[in-house]
Amino acid sequence: MSLSPTTDATRFLLRAKNQEAWGFVLLGITGALWLWFAFLLLTPYGSCESRLFTDAPTANAGTSFRNSCAAERDWPELLGVLGLSVPTSVVGAVLHTSGRFGILLSEQAAASAAVRRTGDTGG
């Protein structure tokens, strides 16, 4: 059973738009993960202030190696959020790019077919 070229082109375009949309969703999730990471990194934690927004001349001023604030920070959670953003960004970028390329390819094929049709009937 053979499908018509129009049906094949429509299915190809629909699949490409679906890929692009999923890529955009995954990139949005990546952005949300980065915002969460920034929130966790920049907000005060426990009884300690954020190391970025400190009144000390440097972030390490007045700290010792066995500082209780350094022990309070939940680094595995921060690194987990950051690590989770890597595969979502890679897969999202690949899906978005391949979907966009498929849409452009489909539009080019449709324009080419239209030129061929007008050339067959007009010339």
Rank of each mutant, 00 (worst) to 15 (best):
A109H: 13
I29D: 06
A71P: 00
E107A: 03
V90E: 01
G28A: 09
A71G: 02
G119F: 10
Q108M: 15
T6I: 12
S112I: 15
F65C: 02
W36V: 15
Y45T: 09
S4C: 04
H96L: 09
T6N: 07
L33H: 06
I103L: 04
A61S: 08
F65V: 04
T88Y: 01
G119Q: 11
G122S: 13
T118A: 12
D8E: 11
T97E: 09
R15M: 11
G28V: 04
L13K: 09
F12P: 00
S112P: 05
A61L: 00
W34M: 13
T6E: 08
T97Q: 13
L105R: 09
G99S: 06
G83I: 02
A114I: 02
A109K: 07
E107H: 08
L35V: 14
L104V: 02
S85D: 01
G31W: 02
L33Y: 13
L78H: 04
D8H: 12
L26T: 05
G102T: 03
F65P: 00
G123T: 11
Y45L: 05
E49D: 15
T6Q: 12
V94E: 07
V25L: 12
F39L: 03
A16R: 06
L52V: 12
F24N: 15
C69Q: 07
A110R: 14
G123P: 07
A56H: 08
G62W: 02
N18I: 14
W75E: 14
S112A: 15
R116Q: 07
S47A: 14
S4Q: 05
A71F: 09
A61C: 00
R116N: 10
A71M: 07
G119K: 14
Q19E: 11
F101Y: 14
T118K: 14
P76N: 03
L95I: 08
G99H: 07
P57N: 00
Q108L: 15
V90K: 05
G31A: 10
S89M: 14
A109T: 11
L26W: 06
F101Q: 13
F37V: 05
A38N: 13
W34T: 10
A114R: 04
S50M: 07
E20S: 15
W75T: 11
F101N: 07
G80H: 04
G92P: 06
A38R: 15
A56D: 09
A9K: 08
L3H: 00
T54H: 05
N67Y: 04
F37T: 06
S2M: 07
